[in-house]
């Protein structure tokens, strides 16, 4: 069984919600990512969402855009992401890792080459922001054969027909985008999130997790109560950016700063 499904199964049995933190590979330096991933797990992350740097991250707000730019400056690429997951797996065989990114680096590598490398590295899921179901048929077939879950987004603007189509194709979990906007934007409208999540749940047995606009323990809890988990990105990336701007070069400092935030959110979800 895929690690993502296994993890949700365990969470369901424990009556707990998933906490899914995001970071960008190579942000701000190549040696920071691995220790931060391990620290995330230690402080209570259930699934790691590893962002693959791209030159044109059109779905990202300014905070995550800058993270992509910092990572590209040190040459971090999709190939490095795969190598890093393999390294992560040496000491963590259990925590699911999903790669979040854009279609072009995968297109450049080629679907089959990418998927073979992802399987051997121990990647569990892929979320490609600009590869909606209509354009993902071929990719989806390859992923399915390899046992890697294709995570799809649903948005407040998704029609009922699309929600049906997407839930029919998706694996792992449904990533519900809580707002109209880019990552890191705006404020949560919890009532609207509830309405949409309830509807998605009526269409599928897949877990539904909510991302975009989650800033702290309280907002993580408010969406997790309505769904199966919370995805947290910009607030973590922003904390790391603060250290980077202050010239911090010790990976342990990044790990401990991120741990602090994750611990707070974990506690908010569990208590």
């Amino acid at each position: 069984m895929n690690r993502i499904n296994k993890r949700f199964e365990t969470l369901r049995q424990q009556g707990r919600k998933a906490l899914i933190p995001y970071l960008v590979l190579g942000d701000p330096a190549r040696d920071v990512t691995l220790p931060v991933m391990h620290a995330m797990v230690k402080s209570g992350a259930d699934i790691i969402e590893l962002g693959v740097p791209f030159s044109d991250p059109t779905a990202e707000g300014p905070v995550i855009q800058k993270a992509h730019e910092r990572a590209l400056l040190n040459g971090s690429s999709l190939r490095d992401a795969l190598a890093l997951v393999a390294q992560f797996r040496e000491t963590d065989p259990d925590t699911p890792v999903l790669l979040m990114g854009y279609a072009n680096p995968i297109e450049r590598m080629g679907y089959e080459t990418f998927i073979a490398a992802a399987v051997s590295a121990g990647v569990d899921g892929v979320l490609t922001v600009d590869l909606p179901p209509e354009e993902a048929e071929e990719f989806n077939q390859h992923l399915g054969k390899a046992g890697i879950e294709n995570i799809f987004l649903l948005a407040p603007t998704s029609s009922n027909d699309r929600q049906k189509m997407v839930t029919g194709m998706a694996g792992g979990f449904i990533y519900y985008v809580s707002l109209k906007g880019v990552t890191g934007a705006g404020n949560l409208d919890v009532a609207s999130v509830k309405q949409h999540v309830d509807h998605i749940r009526s269409l599928t047995d897949l877990p539904v997790c909510v991302g975009f606009g989650i800033k702290d323990g309280a907002s993580a809890r408010s969406v997790a109560e309505l769904s199966d988990g919370a995805v947290v990105g910009s607030v973590l990336v922003n904390r790391m950016a603060g250290l980077a701007e202050a010239g911090e070069s010790d990976p342990a400092a990044y790990a401990s700063a991120v741990s602090e935030l994750i611990t707070e959110m974990r506690n908010a979800l569990d208590n």
Binding site: T58, A103, P132, E135, L153, P156, T157, S158, V177
Partner: peptide, 22 residues
């Protein structure tokens, strides 16, 4: 019908924009 010119074109955008394009 889906905007493909041979293998090119299409609609490679995030989910939120699909409805606006529709």
């Amino acid at each position: 019908a889906r905007g493909h010119f041979g293998p090119y074109g299409g609609r490679f955008v995030s989910e939120t924009l699909i409805y606006a394009l529709d």
